[in-house]
Nucleic acid binder design. Structure first.
Lengths: 257, 257
DNA sequence: GAGGTCACATTGTCCGGACAATCACGTCCG
DNA sequence: CGGACGTGATTGTCCGGACAATGTGACCTC
């Protein structure tokens, strides 16, 4: 039978870590970042053992709880797996990034494309029943409305319609053309917390087809999203339409144990 | 019991918790479950403070790290928010469930529908290049193939095609009609870890329309998914098609701080 | 040789304490 | 009256240790 090779354990790990106690960065965070970098660059091979926590702590001059905290954060990210009695090992699969609350802008940017934005509308309007329910305001109340066309390689990719509470944010049209909405919100001190999404599909109307360069009746990917900040306040309601021929949602998700 | 002192905050913390030290269930887990139940039933109102950790620990006869571990698990679930200098409070928004690696079967079941499954195919086949790449086997190698039609209220909702490594699982056709694939895998001792998904849309072919009861060219929602267990092995590759007129993906997602 | 048993290694849980960082709030001063 | 400042409250980080639970592998028995 196959004998478990012993060099995966390795009496001494070839990878060295170190922490800077004078830095304001928490020690566990320093360590978790170094571990993550080592995993991503392959210096810690998939499937390899990490060496037991106690020895690792001693080697770094840290306590075991601190080392555990660092490891745990990577387990939560799906990069490591712990097994009682065995050890902690690097996950085999190609974990890229779990599903994030990312804007389309970031999606395209990380995909190597150069997203462009054309702001079609930047005004205020009266909330419809749907928008009012999503944002938690009265029907007919004034809300901000932004409509944008997102392009990649000069081609339309998506039509984005966002409703926001008035006064939440200063929505400069030129800033909206430079970056994504979420970045603006974060920059304004809003800490995003969670979002409720619905992803579906439908056929393009004549108007939608015109805007996106698709024939009427072409399949479109739709997403509706309400985003909340950490006080539970709804800060955005988006109703977006993507060209199915040019875009798909790709993401990785983890099983919550 | 010492000082009850003045609860100057909101004077709203009459909820009592208790732990059973003779139980094999970890203490932090007992506490987190009770907290979660209290939040879901509304006994802990949204926005209300939780009372500081040290006092809570003293009241329960637990140490602060244990209480923190319980609270942290709920913070990770998005139910609580911690603020330094302020306290821990229940989030306002209607957090339902974060995106899970759930089967369509579970989705429909929790939606109150009674899903039915018709197994169209349960056999083995030779892996195409796409399947081979996803499952990490050689092209042309034998893999299991299952095709199912999922119905709700007697109407077709989705066509599911799954490829699996041979010998991984005993796929009884009658069991496939009773429950979802993921439940079978879990029951077989496979611990799911992560999945890579792609969600898109396209127009129905004539054959697809026939199967799902849609006209040719109707918009369909598509999902491709490769699922990995905790050893990094690909255990399933799914290629699914949903009727956009009858189904949409709904989920909640959390921002990774 | 097959199967069960036991020691060992490793992570899981829990404790008690210490100090730092941050935020809300009241106080003091201009 | 308003802004700067200090103070208290609360969570964040970190330590060192103890015992339990679990899976592996070697050893022993049959």
């Amino acid at each position: 039978m196959g004998k478990r090779d012993t060099d995966s354990k390795g009496a001494e790990s070839p990878v060295q870590f170190s922490v800077d106690r004078s830095s304001p960065v928490p020690l566990y965070f320093q360590l978790s970042q170094q571990l993550e970098a080592a995993i991503e660059t392959g210096r810690l091979a998939p499937g390899s053992l990490l060496g037991n926590e106690i020895e690792l702590a001693g080697r770094l001059g840290l306590s075991r709880p601190t080392v555990r905290q660092a490891i745990q954060s990577l387990v939560d990210k799906g990069l490591l797996v712990r097994r009682r009695g065995i050890g902690t090992q690097v996950v085999h699969s190609q974990v890229k990034r779990p599903l994030e609350l990312s804007s389309l802008y970031d999606d395209l940017e990380t995909a190597g494309q150069k997203p462009a934005t054309r702001v079609l509308l930047n005004t205020t309007t009266e909330a419809t029943a749907e928008v009012a329910a999503a944002l938690g305001v009265a029907e007919g109340a004034e809300v901000a409305l932004v409509e944008r066309l997102r392009l990649a390689h000069g081609e339309p990719v998506a039509h984005l319609r966002n409703h926001l509470p008035v006064g939440l944010l200063d929505l400069g049209t030129e800033r909206l053309e430079e970056t994504g909405l979420y970045r603006l919100m974060r920059a304004a001190g809003i800490t995003l917390h969670s979002a409720r999404q619905s992803v579906g599909a439908r056929a393009a109307t004549a108007e939608e087809g015109e805007r996106l360069g698709e024939p009427e009746g072409a399949p479109l990917l739709t997403m509706q999203r309400t985003t909340f900040d950490d006080t539970g306040r709804a800060v955005e309601f988006g109703s977006h339409v993507y060209r199915a021929s040019r875009y798909a949602f790709e993401f990785q998700l983890l099983v919550r144990p």
